[in-house]
């Protein structure tokens, strides 16, 4: 398969970037999107051109390191992460736009690599349970009703990739923060710091420069882990509850 790529190139954080055109030739249909970029990069290196920089790690849809906005949608808007997107899903000979996750809170470091440490700082503000746990306790020592456990697990599926921010027309981080707030608010271990957590995490999210949620639900549509916007409603509830508590 052959593709025409429009890729964002930016030398460093301070430089002004622009879209460049590249050809991806003889691509195996079963390659992942990142493998396709590897092939393009090998070609660029041979030609003495600086290869395209992009984030990646596990390449099996677990870690949340890969990003990329493909044809206007984070992770290509398909099920799963960019590393799971196969080239057979694209039309042979088509043009593909590859851009970094764009948000004030995610400044570009180089090319398609962005700095997502703002997400880590939101977690540091309250996305934890500060109890000294000691040795692991018996699995069923703290009873959690099945439905609560399931719901907490749905929220915990978030891998913190930032696709929700990239997809949101306002670059809002609400879905990510909501998933983390909800996960811990649903479990007994998270109760003691419940109000403090939501206050701190929302405050940090705002300080980091994420936009405001206006309920477009684009985040939910592109989330590789299918996190529901119901968690945003839940976080709004948690925030109001913390206000009066």
């Amino acid at each position: 398969m052959n593709f025409k790529l429009h890729v964002w190139r930016q030398k460093n954080a301070a430089a002004k970037g622009r879209m460049e055109q590249y050809e991806a030739r003889d691509i195996n249909a079963d390659m992942s999107f990142l493998e396709m970029l590897d092939v393009v990069n090998e070609d660029l290196v041979e030609k003495g051109i600086d290869p395209i920089h992009f984030d990646h790690d596990c390449r099996e849809g677990i870690c949340g390191a890969c990003s990329l906005v493909i044809n206007g949608l984070p992770h290509g808007g398909m099920t799963g992460t960019t590393c799971e997107v196969r080239m057979r899903l694209f039309k042979d000979g088509s043009t593909i736009y590859v851009e970094p996750f764009r948000a004030k809170a995610f400044p570009v470091i180089k090319d398609l690599t962005v700095d997502r440490t703002s997400i880590d700082r939101v977690m540091q503000a309250g996305g934890f349970v500060s109890t000294h746990t000691g040795a692991a306790i018996d699995a069923n020592a703290i009873l959690v009703p099945k439905d609560k456990a399931e719901e907490a697990m749905d929220a915990a599926a978030c891998i913190g990739c930032g696709a929700c921010v990239a997809a949101c027309k306002n670059a809002s981080g609400m879905l990510f923060v909501a998933a983390k707030v909800s996960q811990l608010a649903l479990l007994p271990q998270g109760q003691a710091e419940r109000e403090r957590r939501v206050n701190k995490m929302v405050a940090m999210m705002d300080i980091e420069g994420f936009g405001n949620c206006t309920n477009y639900y684009e985040c939910e549509a592109v989330c590789p882990k299918d996190i529901s916007v119901k968690f945003i409603a839940k976080m709004n509830r948690e925030y109001m509850r913390a206000l009066v508590k």
């Binding site: 429009h6 964002w8 970037g17 879209m19 906005v69 044809n71 206007g72 949608l73 808007g77 736009y97 851009e99 764009r102 948000a103 004030k104 809170a105 997809a167 027309k169 306002n170 670059a171 809002s172 420069g209 994420f210 936009g211 405001n212 206006t214 477009y216 639900y217 684009e218 939910e220 549509a221 592109v222």
Partner: peptide, 17 residues
């Protein structure tokens, strides 16, 4: 919200909004 994304996308897409 506009300022939360200083550089806009070259290719824009919307799924469900």
């Amino acid at each position: 919200n506009k300022f939360s994304r200083p550089i806009s996308y070259a290719c824009n897409a919307t799924v469900q909004a």
